[in-house]
Nucleic acid binder design. Structure first.
Lengths: 129, 129
DNA sequence: GCTACGCTCTTACCGTTGTAGTAGGACGCA
DNA sequence: TGCGTCCTACTACAACGGTAAGAGCGTAGC
């Protein structure tokens, strides 16, 4: 499983590791907002499952507490997520964009940013080649 | 539950109803490609579950077969899907776009189309107002 | 009227996700 | 050295999604 499927809560946990680097379970748990924060052991279970999915690993120990670090990259996980999402729309990008725009999720600034990003990317690609 | 969460298979079933109008289970099942098509009773179970979720309803009967029709609209369902997806990215559109572009899912044509759509939408809004 | 086929309904099972309790080990402080 | 605290490891369980089998009923054709 090069790219395991991650659920929402799993993603949120990975997010902490991506942002903070190697982190203990207690710190992951506390990084959730005080309201609606899952129990310590809930986070623990998720971390263990992410470990069996090879999404993270035990990096070292501090006292008797394990410190975990991400194995898969944020980009890889997000790319997986995007694929998943696209498949719900039949895999074509155009209807997705249409939906985003008509539902008002996508502003003209977003599109302008996207355009700039595309140009930058094209320029970089040319330079690399 | 104004907007029930629909899974991928559920979406595919709704898609048939949205495209074809009221449809019998047999016809829904057969509208899946011959390879990898789920069993009749699998589709049936999903339809029943969609019924309890109030995503579709029994419209009428032909012989002893029920004909089902969509209750929720395609746009509503897709909007729900988009929200779900966005929440995985922290709710902000910009990182999503960045991800889409960097992963090569979004072409310059897509962005151009988006731009045109935005302009059309803005024009329509002005006219309505 | 009888039979066969198709559809309905019910039930079941497995994997995943979210949720958490509990038992027990380790550590540090008094 | 003993007590409380914190962490680990294990276990449990319910909801949901995907999968489907089995029993039984109605209808249509003969």
């Amino acid at each position: 499983m090069a790219l395991p499927k991650l659920s929402k809560l799993e993603l949120q946990i990975m997010e902490v590791l991506w942002n903070n680097g190697p982190t203990a379970i207690r710190d992951i748990q506390e990084s959730f907002g005080a309201k609606g924060r899952p129990a310590y052991t809930t986070v623990q279970t998720m971390v263990y499952r992410l470990e069996t999915k090879k999404a993270l690993r035990r990096a070292r120990k501090i006292g008797n507490a394990h410190i975990f670090e991400a194995v898969i990259s944020r980009d890889a996980a997000k790319a997986r997520l995007v694929d998943e999402f696209l498949s719900m729309f039949g895999g074509r990008m155009q209807p997705v964009m249409a939906q985003l725009i008509e539902a008002g999720n996508l502003s003209s600034k977003d599109v302008a940013d996207a355009e700039k990003l595309l140009r930058d990317l094209a320029a970089k690609k040319k330079k690399d080649a």
